[in-house]
Design a protein around this nucleic acid. Structure first.
Length: 221
DNA sequence: AACCAGGAGACAT
DNA sequence: ATGTCTCATGGT
């Protein structure tokens, strides 16, 4: 099954998702760290706290007392860890000279830089690359593994880099694919939340025509 | 009331 | 290299 075909089906069914939900690139980066293994609605509360305290800013985050930062992050869970991670990230961000300097880096160098911040792993780095810096990077998350494993496109347990290379090679790595990668990942998340979880063997979802497991267990529960 | 959510790091094997 | 544990709130 072609990845383009799956994309078309998702887009036709759900429509454009216009991600990332965030106003500025920096806010996108903050959200990427805070949403680690966490529901987005909770992240929004934490970001609202930061904004209410004029702390949606790298310098403010670095300068504020860690206890206080953690208290703002509380609704997004793991607040002690995330306070450190966000702080690490902001220190790196400032040390690199800010957004303009980072935006001038080629994607591989920028990615390596992000990955060497403690608290920024492959998925968070790729969220930032794609949604804040508009680089043609395909984000792999647990939903992507689950959905495409169910479709029989991949096995599911492959290493992160293996899957990323798989999707990028088959879709193309050109800069013109930024929009495609952006929308594709957003649609995957949307689909995973809506259809794939409620009906693990859904015969009615928009991918049923290309989904082997839909034929096997055709009942609705 | 268990279970999970747009992961990552530390640590043991 | 590959598993397992921990971090923590908020919504089903």
């Amino acid at each position: 099954m072609e990845l383009r075909d799956i994309y078309r089906r998702l887009l036709r069914h759900y429509g454009p998702q216009s991600w990332w939900p965030g106003e500025t690139p920096f806010e996108v980066m903050v959200g990427a760290v805070l949403t680690q293994n966490t529901a987005w609605e909770n992240v929004e509360k934490a970001i609202a706290n930061l904004r209410a305290n004029d702390a949606l800013d790298p310098r403010a985050i670095v300068e504020v007392h860690p206890k206080r930062l953690a208290s703002w992050l509380r609704p997004s869970g793991y607040f002690n860890v995330k306070a450190k991670r966000l702080r690490n990230f902001c220190r790196w961000y400032l040390a690199q000279g800010g957004e303009a300097e980072l935006a001038a880096l080629p994607t591989p160098a920028l990615r390596r830089g992000l990955l060497h911040v403690s608290g920024v792993g492959p998925e968070t780095a790729d969220d930032i690359l794609l949604y804040a810096f508009e680089r043609p990077v395909f984000v792999i998350d647990a939903y992507t593994r689950r959905i495409f494993a169910r479709l029989g496109v991949v096995e599911g347990g492959e290493d992160y880099e293996v899957l990323r290379a798989f999707f990028e090679e088959r879709l193309g790595r050109g800069r013109r694919n930024v929009g495609l990668f952006n929308e594709y990942h957003a649609l995957i998340v949307r689909h995973a939340k809506q259809a794939c979880r409620v009906r693990p063997h859904c015969a009615h979802c928009c991918l049923a025509a290309v989904c082997p497991s839909a034929e096997v267990a055709g009942e609705d529960s």
